[in-house]
């Protein structure tokens, strides 16, 4: 034991100071592909055909993109002959309104619905999270567990995981909500004191894609729980998770509006 104390002191600090400054640790990590409609050919449907989760669909003359269904597989980027879809580092995709994940030609000027003033104030600095895995592939859990490693060191932001829903401010849900997890998930929600928040983590929890076609897989949290922040990604990386948590606490701005990413 004394050896490990010494080893820890000697190793020094490994945590990033991000988002205040310093690296986010996601160099090279690809996020949601960006769409440039100017470059798009009207009669081409290759991106829609290549998308395995129907995140891109053709409606009449128009291409409709729903990032709530995007699993970041980059197939559309490879299939587009005009380069209208480009790989990007746009992974901080947490939004307060699910509609903001749908690409829109014109962005509404509305600032997005803010959290109720009371909740925002009562939770502004610190947050206790109850996690429920409602049928994920374990990719999201792997990245949530990474928040606890010395690089991200989530505690430095005053955010903690709690074993009991009784002490939790936030319910963090992963997975499409399988048939057998529906009851335990709702029971956990019922056990939480108010005010309580919900964060849908991963494309599965946001829309059910790509599991939604099954006999036992669900379609995410839409219509099941009142979600405060939606974070698609397959899986969202730890920095995207931190961004979503800080967005929830109104400590970081939303980056996406009308399906468009603002740098």
């Amino acid at each position: 034991m004394p050896f490990w104390t010494w080893a820890g002191i000697k190793a020094g600090r490994a945590s990033t100071q991000w988002p205040a400054r310093g690296p986010d640790g996601q160099e090279g990590v690809l996020g949601m592909p960006r769409w440039q409609p100017e470059a798009c050919q009207n009669d081409c449907q290759r991106c829609a055909e290549s998308c395995p989760t129907q995140a891109i669909q053709r409606r009449g003359e128009n291409i409709v993109i729903d990032y709530a269904r995007c699993i970041v597989c980059q197939s559309c980027v490879e299939s587009c002959p005009e380069g209208a879809l480009q790989s990007s580092g746009d992974w901080a995709f947490a939004v307060r309104r699910r509609e903001d994940l749908q690409w829109q030609a014109a962005v509404e000027s509305e600032d997005g619905r803010m959290l109720q003033q009371k909740i925002a104030q009562s939770l502004r600095r610190s947050l206790h999270i109850k996690h429920v895995d409602a049928g994920s592939c374990n990719g999201c859990e792997s990245e949530i567990a990474a928040l606890d490693n010395p690089f991200y060191n989530l505690h430095r932001l005053g955010i903690f995981f709690t074993p009991s829903p009784r002490f939790a401010d936030l319910l963090l849900v992963t997975g499409p909500v399988t048939t057998t997890m529906r009851d335990p998930l709702l029971a956990t929600w019922e056990a939480m004191p108010e005010p309580r928040l919900v964060l849908a983590v991963g494309t599965c929890a946001v829309s059910g894609a790509p599991m939604d076609a099954g006999y036992a897989g669900g379609t995410g949290l839409d219509g099941l729980l009142p979600v405060d922040v939606w974070l698609p990604g397959c899986p969202p990386n730890p920095a995207a998770l931190i961004h979503a948590l800080l967005l929830l606490l109104a400590r970081q701005p939303q980056r996406v509006q009308g399906g468009r990413y603002v740098d």
Binding site: G8, Q26, V29, Y152
Partner: peptide
């Protein structure tokens, strides 16, 4: 400390994966 060290080494491999392939899980 030993636990933190193991998880930090894991994180470094995942970051390397990200730089190398665009995905921390080497997907796609």
């Amino acid at each position: 400390v030993a636990s933190a060290e193991g998880l930090l080494l894991e994180e470094r491999v995942k970051q390397l994966n990200g730089r190398l392939s665009g995905s921390r899980f080497l997907r796609s």
